[in-house]
């Protein structure tokens, strides 16, 4: 589109002042939806996403799987979440995101422990500012854990991409729009196995390696934020 937008200045800093390997701030809170079995709210930069999880007998009955649970994530964007109003209802992009998020969560959940069960993960993007699929997945896995669903690990995600031809971590909206590539990835941190990975744009093998090693590092910190969010629900505050 507009190739003349400069995403990285002469000091090597990005438009929002971050270094090439610097994340936006992330905050996660659990137990935010009283009615749900589990829930989480994530603020990732200017992204605001809320996730609620319901664990229940699969319905209609013929969708039940006799030896395992099924995971149904539904990624939805509020009309007011983006610059131009998003028309309500699923579209091709949101349906694909729902699918890859469901599949990534399925790898982390011990499905055999919950035969005939459906795990509904409702994701509502209240404000979107690049990286919503990964922020949604990162929050979803916390919400699923918050619901007490048995899991092998907490899925953690991150994105990298290219801005002005350079590999950078955690793309901003401008970098997503005017950059040359977008690489969302999610792993199970205990094993480092990749459960979500998509690329679109122009990425060489070396750039792929740079991007993944940056993301692997960043995901350690995000993992900790996820764990802290779960733990803090059960901790007793001092001085009360």
């Amino acid at each position: 589109m507009e190739g003349n937008i400069k995403l990285i200045n002469d000091d090597g800093l990005r438009l929002d002042g971050r270094a090439f390997n610097e994340m936006r701030p992330i905050k996660i809170q659990t137990g935010v939806i009283e009615k749900a079995d589990g829930s989480a709210f994530i603020e990732w930069g200017a992204n605001k996403i809320i996730v609620a999880v319901y664990v229940r007998e699969a319905y209609p009955k013929h969708t039940q799987n006799m030896d395992r649970a099924i995971v149904k994530a539904r990624y939805n964007m509020a009309g007011f979440s983006v610059e131009e109003r998003k028309r309500p209802g699923p579209d091709r992009r949101t349906m694909e995101i729902s699918k890859v998020v469901s599949e990534a969560l399925s790898s982390a959940i011990i499905l055999e422990k919950l035969p005939r069960v459906e795990i509904d993960v409702f994701i509502e993007v209240l404000e979107a500012d690049a990286g919503t699929r990964i922020a949604s997945l990162t929050a979803s896995s916390v919400a699923v854990a918050d619901a007490g669903v048995p899991m092998r690990d907490l899925v953690v995600g991150c994105t990298a991409g290219k801005a002005d031809g350079r590999v950078v971590l955690d793309l901003s909206k401008d970098e997503d729009n005017y950059g040359q590539a977008d690489i969302p990835m999610a792993i199970l941190p205990r094993t480092g196995k990749v459960v979500l990975l998509q690329i679109d744009g122009d990425v060489s093998e070396e750039e792929f390696d740079q991007a993944t090693s940056m993301m692997m590092n960043a995901m350690k910190d995000i993992s900790k934020i996820q764990r802290d969010a779960l733990m803090s629900k059960y901790s007793i505050e001092d001085g009360e």
Partner: peptide, 28 residues
């Protein structure tokens, strides 16, 4: 150009980074 223009991990399952690198080489 031997660059990756699209990549997609699909279905339930997991890959190590080494497997993904191998997949890139094979695709090339």
């Amino acid at each position: 150009d031997n660059h990756i223009h699209a990549m997609q991990k699909g279905d339930v399952g997991e890959f190590s980074l080494d497997e993904i690198r191998k997949a890139i080489k094979t695709s090339s």
